[in-house]
């Protein structure tokens, strides 16, 4: 890349980001997904300003109020209130913070650890590689939610442990992807050239090879982001993730379970928030895959 930019431009090639955006924006769903994610992120950032009430404030005179368009509802609590009189809309807006934070932390942890393990497996073939890859096979043999539940059972239920558990569960995907792309890059001439020029191991790993393995990792990262939100909500729902009164969306659903037949709104809206967020990330992930996959280009 740096060598290319030093050659005086003849018919200037499009900037990589611009080229990427052209491919990405061809997929309408992906653009919609991105827009929704930006919106949710803005809501999460400004939750204190946007939310009409503090998320944990209990209004004792307004228990289980329905949303404003139903009889008995009012615009004071637009999406109704829960069993102890907390405003649903405010809790859901604040919950966006947790879900986005969970996704970001899980993907960062899992990606960082997975990339290292994958690079080590690719650079030191042989027994180190076998140990790493067999360990990943074992992790893949267990259903991901079950493995996450087991890790939480060991560490004890809490939001932090749930995130840690999910990050561990997603590790194999990142390790496998990094290893596979790093191995195919390692046979390329530019890597040999860099090696001959005297590049050290860390330089080869992180500066020469890794940037060329990023495309599939970015796609997997986006998809892991949505799965992390879903799995963290599932753990919260089972009582193994964030603990009440944290307004995490899965935990909101767990609290709402007993009112399922009496107050549909306490169940419906938190789940809808999960669905919309996860869907947006999946849409964007599909678009990223199309835009970043060199096989599909041109």
């Amino acid at each position: 890349m740096t060598e290319a930019s030093q050659i005086p431009a003849r018919a200037a090639p499009p900037h990589p980001l611009r080229e990427f955006w052209e491919y990405f924006s061809e997929n309408k769903g992906a653009v919609v997904g991105l827009a929704v994610i930006v919106l949710i992120a803005l809501l999460a950032l400004s939750a204190d300003l946007v939310a009409p009430h503090p998320p944990n404030e209990q209004y004792r005179d307004a228990l289980l109020r329905p949303p404003f368009w139903q009889d008995g509802g009012s615009l004071l609590y637009p999406l109704g209130t829960d069993a102890v009189g907390r405003d649903m809309l405010s809790r859901i807006i604040h919950g966006a913070r947790y879900s986005l934070m969970i996704g970001a932390i899980v993907v960062t942890l899992s990606l960082a650890a997975g990339v290292w393990l994958g690079l080590i497996a690719a650079f030191f073939r042989g027994s180190i590689e076998s140990v790493i890859m067999r360990a990943m096979d074992v992790m893949l043999a267990l259903p991901s939610l079950l493995l996450a539940i087991v890790v939480v059972a060991i560490l004890g239920p809490s939001l932090v442990n749930a995130m840690l558990a999910i990050a561990i569960v997603y590790l194999p995907h990142f390790v496998r992807l990094t290893r596979a792309s790093a191995i195919s890059e390692l046979s390329r001439d530019y890597v040999t050239a860099s090696r001959v020029a005297g590049a050290g191991l860390l330089r080869l790993m992180l500066i020469t090879v890794l940037p060329n393995c990023m495309a599939p990792l970015v796609v997997q990262g986006t998809l892991a982001f949505s799965s992390a939100i879903l799995d963290a909500a599932a753990l919260g729902f089972l009582g193994l993730g964030a603990q009440p009164p944290t307004p995490e969306w899965g935990t909101l659903l767990a609290e709402a379970r007993e009112f399922v037949l009496r107050a549909w709104w306490v169940v419906t809206f938190p789940g809808l928030a999960i669905l919309i967020t996860v869907l947006a990330f999946n849409l964007m992930g599909d678009g990223l895959r199309d835009a970043l996959d060199p096989k599909l280009k041109r």
Binding site: A233, L253, V267, L275, L279
Partner: peptide, 13 residues
């Protein structure tokens, strides 16, 4: 993308 625990609750409703 469905959180199936929520989907189940919706169908119950």
């Amino acid at each position: 993308s469905m959180p199936i625990f929520w989907w189940g609750l919706l169908l119950i409703i």
